[in-house]
Simulated assay, not measured.
Amino acid sequence: MAFSRYVAIGDSQTEGLWDGADSTLVGFADRLAIRLDELYPGLLYANLAVRGRRVGDVLNHQLPQALSMEADLITVCVGMNDATLPGRSFERALLQLDVLHERLAASGAAVVTTTFPNVAKTLPVGRLLAARIIRINTAIRSAATQYGFHLVDLYTAPSMIERDTWSTDRMHASTKGHILFAAAAAEALGLPGSSHDWAQAAGAGAAPGPGARAFAQLQWTRNMLAPWIWRHLRGRSAGDGRAPKRPVLHGVR
């Protein structure tokens, strides 16, 4: 299947956080778009993802924009911000995710979606999130089966627990991680030259031990939890004031 209009929607992972300088982020979606353009020259690409966005933001704002662009390929990665948010809003997010999947299926576009990695193996606080990660991954897998979405399963991949797959906060991908995500999406789409190699452990970045996980916990608390509490008290989000980096369809190069 050839693609001519690719739109990426989601949060910081799709925006490309930690893959390059903040003003020149790359990320897995950009890397996938480059690969697609090599196969299908003239591909038009937009990236509507913004850090901090939750399922409701993507459902109510990003998805309508993607549909208006008549995308024939949409990648969606969203829900981690809902899973990490304390309180009862997670249940609403799961319901919104069902609606998001239904509307994506009705669009007629090819859809690539992804489960979330097992953060319990990379981050001490991940054990507190384990039940939510399992629930949202179950919802994502069920939608992929029901609607025929192309699924990237990060949860079971050995490469996803290697230390160098992740940035210092252990919640966002490193450049290596974004490269692996792009390769995983290419495999999910069945692109020529793709394989399951991305999921294999390379051995160079072994799974973090107790000391590394404790340091990751400190980094997560300092770089994510504390700023989140401060923003929450002021009713703000990490993405406030930020526009998508590629808000309209343009050629990849």
Rank of each mutant, 00 (worst) to 15 (best):
Ala212Arg: 07
Arg234Gln: 11
Asp240Tyr: 05
Pro158Arg: 12
Asp197Val: 15
Leu128Asp: 12
Gly235Pro: 02
Gly209Cys: 03
Ile229Lys: 10
Tyr147Glu: 12
Val76Arg: 10
Leu225Ser: 14
Ala188Tyr: 01
Trp166Leu: 00
Gly235Leu: 04
Ala49Pro: 02
Thr145His: 09
Trp166Tyr: 04
Phe149Leu: 11
Ala2Tyr: 07
Arg253Leu: 03
Pro244Tyr: 04
Ile161Asn: 11
Phe116Gly: 05
Met224Phe: 14
Arg5Val: 02
Arg246Pro: 15
Ser194Arg: 08
Ala8Tyr: 07
Gly239Gln: 09
Gln65Trp: 06
Asp169Gln: 10
Leu104Asn: 05
Ala131Asn: 12
Arg213His: 11
Gly177Leu: 02
Leu59Met: 06
Arg246Met: 14
Ala143Ile: 01
Ser23Asn: 13
Thr175Cys: 05
Asn81Ala: 07
Arg35Ser: 13
Ala182Asn: 07
Ala144Ser: 07
Tyr45Cys: 11
Ala144Thr: 06
Ala199Gly: 03
Thr75Gln: 10
Thr113Ile: 10
Leu154Glu: 00
Thr168Lys: 15
Ile133Gly: 02
Leu95Ser: 15
Thr24Pro: 01
Ala46Tyr: 11
Phe215Thr: 00
Ala201Asp: 08
Asp98Asn: 13
Leu85Met: 11
Gly177Tyr: 02
Val26Leu: 13
Lys176Phe: 08
Glu162Thr: 00
Asp197Ala: 07
Thr84Arg: 01
Tyr40His: 09
Thr75Pro: 10
Asn60Trp: 12
Arg92Val: 05
Val58Thr: 07
Leu191Asp: 11
Gln146Cys: 08
Gly211Pro: 01
Gly193Cys: 10
Trp18Phe: 07
Thr145Leu: 04
Val252Ala: 10
Lys121Ser: 06
Thr24Gln: 06
Thr175Phe: 08
Phe215Asn: 11
Ile34Trp: 03
Ile133Val: 07
Phe90His: 05
Ala206Val: 09
Leu151Val: 03
Ala93Phe: 15
Ile134Asn: 10
Leu129His: 13
Ala49Cys: 04
Trp230Gln: 15
Arg132Trp: 12
Ala201His: 06
Leu85Gln: 13
Asp197Asn: 12
Pro244Ile: 03
Asp72Tyr: 04
Trp220Phe: 12
Ala157Ile: 00
His150Ala: 13
Arg53Gln: 15
Ala105Gln: 09
Gly108Trp: 00
Arg222Lys: 14
Trp166Gly: 09
Pro208Trp: 03
Thr115Asn: 14
Asp153Val: 05
Asn137Ala: 06
Glu38Thr: 01
Ser194Asp: 03
Arg231Trp: 07
Ala29Val: 12
Gln219Ile: 08
Leu128Tyr: 14
Leu85Thr: 12
Gly235Trp: 10
Gly56Trp: 06
Asp98Lys: 04
Ser12Met: 01
Met171Cys: 14
Pro158Met: 13
Ala120Tyr: 02
Arg35Pro: 06
Gln217Ser: 10
Leu67Gly: 05
Phe28Met: 13
Gln219Met: 14
Thr114Lys: 12
Arg5His: 03
Ala8Gln: 08
Val119Ala: 01
